[in-house]
Simulated scan of single mutants.
Amino acid sequence: MPDFAPTELIALFQRAQAAFTDRVDAVGPEQWDDEALPGWTVADLVAHLVSEALWVPPLLAGEPFDLIDGRFPDDTSDLLGDDPLTGWESAADGALAAFAQDRALLHTVHLSRGPVSAGEYIEEMTADLTVHSWDLARATHGDTELDPALVTAALVVADRLPETGVPGLFDPPLDVPRTAPPQVRLLGRYGRRG
Rank of each mutant, 00 (worst) to 15 (best):
M1Q: 05
P6V: 04
E8R: 12
E8V: 04
A11D: 13
R15E: 06
A16W: 00
Q17E: 13
Q17I: 13
A18N: 12
A18S: 15
A19K: 01
F20D: 02
T21W: 00
R23V: 05
D25G: 07
A26S: 11
P29R: 08
W32G: 05
D34K: 06
E35F: 01
L37P: 06
P38T: 12
G39N: 09
W40R: 14
W40A: 10
A43D: 08
D44G: 13
D44C: 05
L45G: 05
L45K: 09
L45M: 12
V46N: 05
A47N: 06
H48E: 10
V50W: 08
E52T: 11
E52A: 12
A53F: 02
V56Q: 01
L60H: 09
G62M: 06
E63H: 11
I68G: 09
D69Y: 13
D69M: 12
G70T: 12
F72Q: 14
P73F: 00
D75F: 00
T76M: 02
T76G: 03
L79Q: 09
L79F: 03
L79S: 07
G81R: 02
D82M: 05
D83Y: 01
D83R: 07
L85I: 07
L85V: 14
G87V: 10
S90I: 11
D93V: 05
A95F: 04
A98K: 10
F99N: 10
F99Y: 15
A100E: 01
A104R: 06
L105R: 07
H107K: 13
S112Q: 12
S112E: 13
P115S: 11
A118H: 09
E120H: 11
Y121R: 03
E123M: 11
E123D: 14
D128Q: 09
L129G: 00
H132D: 08
S133M: 03
D135C: 06
D135Q: 01
L136Y: 05
A137V: 07
R138L: 11
R138P: 00
T140S: 09
G142P: 05
T144P: 06
T144H: 06
E145H: 14
P148Q: 09
L155R: 13
V156C: 03
V156M: 04
V156D: 15
V157Q: 09
V157L: 00
V157I: 13
D159W: 01
R160W: 09
E163N: 10
E163D: 15
E163P: 02
T164E: 14
G165F: 02
L169K: 12
L169A: 12
L169H: 07
D171E: 15
P173E: 11
P173T: 08
V184H: 15
L186I: 10
R189Y: 03
R189E: 07
G191D: 11
G191F: 07
R192H: 06
R193V: 08
R193W: 10
G194E: 02
